[in-house]
Amino acid sequence: MTTTSEPRTVAGNLCLGTAPDSWGIWFPEDAHQVPFTRFLDELVAAGYSWLELGPYGYLPTDPKRLAEEVAARGLKVSGGTTFGALHRPQEWDEMLAATREVAALTAAAGAHHLVFIPPMYRDEKTGDFTEGPELTAEQWNSFGGRANELGKILLEDYDVRLCLHPHADSHIQTQPEIERFLNETDSRYANLCLDTGHVAYGGGDNLDLIRRFGERVGYVHIKQMDPDVLKQVSAEGLSFGEAVKRGVCVEPPAGVPDPASIVEELSTLDAELFVIVEQDLYPCAPDVPLPIAVRTREYLSGCGLSGSRRPAL
């Protein structure tokens, strides 16, 4: 197994968990994906006790059944996940209704964070462009206000906190785009899910973001990207889906950014945070994820990450 040579002091403000993404789960249903029961069983076998819900509909959406499946395995839920287009006002009502469903399930599971992912402007499977890669000035002008409005609804109606997740092939991908989002939103209602891999994919500096915007980091996805594949993305104009097929997401410590440095910097924040492992594997053979999950947990444990306590709000 891969471990660090000298285990660091446990970062007491950080709580380690994982997500369906680390088992190659991108969709509610897909022939390439393992059944949710196998995912939950293997999550436990890999030594994790906290999980993010992943794409709405993959795990049971009935709160009672979800609670039973999770409790039967001694698991706990860190947060929910959803996609939404804040730059498309014509879709607000539909987006809000869908987000409310995820927020209600998240709250029923005892979690208080909703990871909100902007839609990709390239198709996840074909790589075809579905819209332009940059928001217009008009779209930017209202983006922050809509994020604040949505975050206020989630907080007041569900006690769930909106954490926007920068994502490859989305309009919140580069560091300037991330910073603009943070500068144009209210910290009471909208903050950042720092996804270390996607920040690196977009050419950003994770440590700089933590140092300058640490009070806005509400939740963390920890992952790494292969720098050689990132060069191919730039040189060939690859879509994120194609980059994943080429193995852009790697297990630590093979890629960028350095997980130990991320953990060390996060440990200095005056906040308690979930740090959720993600390694985009879609599509992958069923037997691939579990050994990776075990090695990743052991490596991150050596960096000081533990999943033994629940962060305070």
Rank of each mutant, 00 (worst) to 15 (best):
T3R: 15
T9R: 14
A19W: 10
G24E: 01
E29Q: 15
D30K: 01
V34K: 09
V34I: 02
F39V: 14
V44T: 14
G47C: 08
L51H: 03
Y58K: 06
K64E: 15
R65H: 14
E69Y: 13
R73D: 12
K76L: 05
G80F: 08
G80Q: 05
L86V: 13
P89K: 01
W92M: 08
A97C: 07
R100K: 10
V102L: 03
A104L: 07
H113S: 05
L114M: 03
F116Q: 04
I117Q: 00
P118Q: 03
Y121Q: 02
K125T: 12
G127R: 12
G132P: 02
E134H: 04
Q139C: 01
L150T: 01
K152S: 11
L154M: 13
L155V: 11
L155K: 11
C163N: 15
H165M: 06
H165G: 00
H165N: 00
H167L: 09
H167P: 02
E177G: 08
E184C: 10
D186H: 09
Y189E: 02
N191E: 03
N191D: 03
C193L: 15
H198A: 06
D205F: 04
D208R: 15
I210L: 12
R211M: 09
G218K: 07
Y219M: 04
H221T: 10
I222Y: 08
K223S: 05
M225L: 04
D228Q: 02
L230G: 04
Q232Y: 01
L238P: 06
E242G: 04
V244I: 15
A254T: 06
G255L: 09
P257T: 13
A260F: 03
S261H: 00
E264P: 06
A271G: 00
E278V: 12
D280F: 10
P291L: 07
Y299C: 06
S301V: 06
C303A: 15
G304P: 13
